[in-house]
Design a protein around this nucleic acid. Structure first.
Length: 282
DNA sequence: GGGTGATCCTGTACGC
DNA sequence: TGCGTACAGGATCACC
């Protein structure tokens, strides 16, 4: 499941593989992947050249000639492959961009959750989701002051607040569990009850963890691979995600898995204790 | 306007 | 072995 480090890894891989290639033909095999009119999507993109690939949160932004941008979200299982056009299609190949040089960019998505949308470059603010993204989780963009303000607005648990992309862009289920464990914060603690010290710790851990994961080229969970088809290098570094029933790396207590806001949530009941006031709520 | 739950979708795991 | 069912989850939408 691609989160920010994985999407950034895909972006870097695709930049090397497909920049300056020109689209000859396009085939859409699953209409719902395309937001908007599929026929218009195809017609507008023929003859366009990929000039740059940007990223904002978990969104990929394919910059094309003639001021067009494809906004792409991989959601759960989406992935891109640059392959020869004569390579056989798989049943999960849903969108194909055939290039004039005989190669092709293919979008594969086992669950068909991913979406792509064509916009005029500069109209990113009109894209639902993209237009409300919070700051990038970097020291330059993401301040403790803004984070504190964001958390004060929410009475709901900190876990779903972190998954809300308007709080901070790019965090997903894996890294939300990891940074809460690193910060010794219970995922059920209401966001607006975090102390200044907890917020600072969480803020710093979000930045450092995503930086570390990006450097390791993402996390290998289930089917994630980068643009070259390689798996991520970060799985060994995960402390709680997917480790229910195993000892906490910090204290040895058995990691528990619960549901918080419809999401599987992993935490250490010893290290991540709810403050006394909230304990009766769980 | 915030919070919650349903929905999309299919491979995998598990029970019978 | 084969079938049925539950589960996984990011973003969006409807509803309260």
């Amino acid at each position: 499941m691609p989160e920010l480090p994985e999407v950034e890894t895909v972006r870097q891989g695709l930049r090397n593989l497909m920049l300056h290639k020109t689209i000859a033909t396009i085939q859409v095999r699953w209409d719902k992947i395309i937001k908007g009119d599929t026929a218009q999507f195809i017609a507008a993109l023929k003859g366009q050249t990929f000039e740059e690939i940007d990223r904002r949160g978990k969104y990929l932004l394919f910059r094309l000639s003639h001021q067009l941008t494809i906004v792409s979200h991989l959601r759960m299982e989406g992935k891109y492959r640059v392959v020869p056009q004569d390579q056989p299609l798989t049943k999960h190949t849903h969108v194909i961009f055939n290039f004039t040089d005989g190669s092709a960019l293919r979008y594969l998505d086992m669950r068909k959750f991913g979406r792509m949308m064509l916009i005029k470059t500069g109209n990113e603010a009109q894209v639902p989701g993209l237009n409300k993204l919070g700051p990038e989780p970097t020291a330059a963009d993401f301040s403790v002051t803004d984070f504190t303000q964001q958390l004060q607005w929410h009475k709901k648990a900190i876990k779903p607040t972190l998954l809300d992309q308007t709080t901070v862009a790019g965090l997903g289920n894996i890294y939300a569990d990891e940074v809460l464990w690193m910060s010794k914060i219970n995922p059920l603690q209401p966001a607006n009850t975090l102390s200044a010290a907890q917020i600072k710790e969480l803020h710093d851990n979000i930045i450092s963890e995503l930086k570390r994961a990006t450097k390791a080229k993402g996390t290998t969970i289930r089917s994630y691979t980068d643009a070259y088809g390689a798996t991520g290098g970060f799985k060994m570094a995960l402390s709680v995600y997917g480790r229910e029933g195993t000892p906490c790396p910090r204290c040895g207590t058995t990691i528990k898995k619960i549901k918080v806001g419809q999401r599987g949530t992993h935490f250490c009941p010893q290290c991540q204790v709810l403050p006394v006031k909230q304990e009766s709520l769980s």
